[in-house]
Design a binder for these strands. Structure first.
Lengths: 131, 131
DNA sequence: ACTGGTGTATATCTGTAGTGATACAGTAGT
DNA sequence: ACTACTGTATCACTACAGATATACACCAGT
């Protein structure tokens, strides 16, 4: 599993892990049944304290993205059917929420906002979603 | 001018002021030419330190929502035609860029993405983008 | 010049989110 | 039982954002 930490992104590390795993699962990069590295393993790789990883993992489990097997490491949970698509929407909505409230505060019309988003979707660019 | 502070909303006070003024201007409750109360005045009303208000006002001025007259208090700025609207779109596009690439990476259809955004716009709530 | 307004630069205090060190508990394999 | 893993509860540390206290500079009216 590949996790890239951007140390000067301002985002807390555990959240970066959280989001990247969530995103990779939603996007199909991590498939149901795939194992996640142990907390200590990932912590060592990223040069972090295991607790930091543990907190991210704990929340992932709580969200149902990942499942705990008895004595073993975490595995990506198999979503049933439409659940995967729902999760993708959810993931997108998460990123879109701030934009929506920004649009409201700017007093922009719904149609205008949608049009701006349509253009953004059409525009192909290297921005990978991390501010 | 009416500002309501929600002390247990978790949002910092200066941001609440900022957003409410921005919103009232965008929504036409505050019209171009309207005066804002002085920093000390508003601070007294809300039982705050003037500096807190000052910081909100400073950012409002920087955003061009409000204008400083020589020796007097702040007044709501008259938007110059489409220039302001263009700036708003630009601002929104900036926030929307990452979301667009996220949608692409998640493999979501353009129509689905737009629908998700429409829902986000409809959903009323104080999410201001700080997770 | 004096008084009562205005705004804010600077430095300081404080609450808290994020991180880490430590120690404890469980499981698998030998 | 022992070893080598696993995860995490608890507490302590740190850094930073937000709020404040203080002090200064400006302007208008008398």
């Amino acid at each position: 599993m590949l996790i890239l930490l951007d140390s000067h992104s301002g985002k807390p590390v555990f959240r970066q892990i959280l989001e990247q795993v969530r995103f990779q699962v939603a996007g199909g990069i991590l498939k149901p049944g795939d194992e996640l590295p142990s907390t200590r393993q990932l912590a060592a790789d990223l040069d972090l304290n295991p607790m930091t990883v543990s907190k991210a993992y704990a929340q992932l489990e709580q969200e149902g993205v990942v499942e705990r097997r008895p004595g073993l490491s975490l595995v990506v949970r198999a979503p049933r059917g439409d659940e995967l698509d729902a999760r993708r929407r959810e993931e997108l909505a998460r990123v879109l929420g701030p934009a929506a409230s920004a649009a409201r505060q700017l007093g922009l019309d719904v149609d205008v906002a949608l049009e701006v988003f349509r253009q953004a979707l059409a525009r192909r660019g290297g921005d990978d979603g991390k501010q």
